[in-house]
Simulated assay, not measured.
Amino acid sequence: MTAEISLSEQQFRTQAIDYDQLAAHGYVIVPQYLAAPYCLQLYQYAQQLSSNCWQQAGIGRADQYTTNTAVRQDKIRWLQREFELENAYLTMMDNLRLEVNRELFMGLFDYECHLAHYPPGAFYRKHLDAFKGRSNRILTSVFYLNPDWQDADGGQLIIYGKRGEVLETVLPEAGKLVLFLSDVFVHEVLAGQRDRYSITGWYRHNNSINGVIDPTR
């Protein structure tokens, strides 16, 4: 499947980001960030990928990397520039990186992301995407692909506050974009009743050493 029209074009974004909300609270939820036809392209693309295109998601980095299905049960596919629709999404999100830097002066350097497939019953327990002083992941993005998702389907993203209180319960509806500070918000993905597809990514600072981006510490 190929992208008929570049997802990087501004006119395909149907709702602007509230940067005042992001600056004040550290997260923002944009219900209809991308128009439905382009969400559908991404959803259908994810669905038609063969099983060998996915890998079991893990936790940790480098020699601490391990798969632990008691914590995390999704399968992932890192997006790559050589595939047209994946490249279109990466280009769109790189344009967003430039926009965030203009609006909030965050100094975001690059972006990486993966498709995530949660089969029925799969979950991801409470976790942080980054720890202060140990990673250059600054801003997390989650973009949802499933059309016609209902509350009864489950699979919600729960975002917690500093005292463990629930700040947001996010239904994974197609076109919805969530941005939050990677080292601030503990979050989890609840088990769903259907196959659930999303794209999770991270904007990063340039903490490279000897040409290695985000080296292990």
Rank of each mutant, 00 (worst) to 15 (best):
A35C: 07
D110T: 00
R81A: 09
F83W: 11
E84C: 13
E99H: 11
H114K: 01
N52V: 14
M92Q: 06
I29G: 11
E99C: 10
N52E: 15
E86D: 05
Y45K: 01
D74R: 00
H25F: 14
Y27D: 03
K75I: 12
A23L: 15
L85N: 02
L108Q: 09
A88Q: 08
V71P: 03
Q64N: 09
R81N: 14
L96D: 04
Y43K: 04
R72L: 08
Q56E: 11
D110R: 05
Y38G: 01
Y33C: 01
E103H: 14
R72H: 04
L108G: 05
G107L: 02
R61A: 10
L40P: 05
M92P: 01
R81L: 08
D63A: 14
S51Y: 15
E103P: 02
D110V: 03
E99Q: 08
S50C: 08
R61C: 03
V71K: 15
Q80K: 13
Q48M: 14
L98G: 13
Y65C: 01
L34E: 01
P37A: 14
I29T: 07
N87T: 10
M92T: 13
T69L: 14
H114M: 10
L42G: 02
P37S: 13
R72K: 06
L49Q: 06
I59L: 12
C39W: 03
I76P: 06
T69E: 12
V71W: 06
D110Q: 02
P37H: 04
Y89V: 02
T67K: 09
Q55P: 09
G26Y: 01
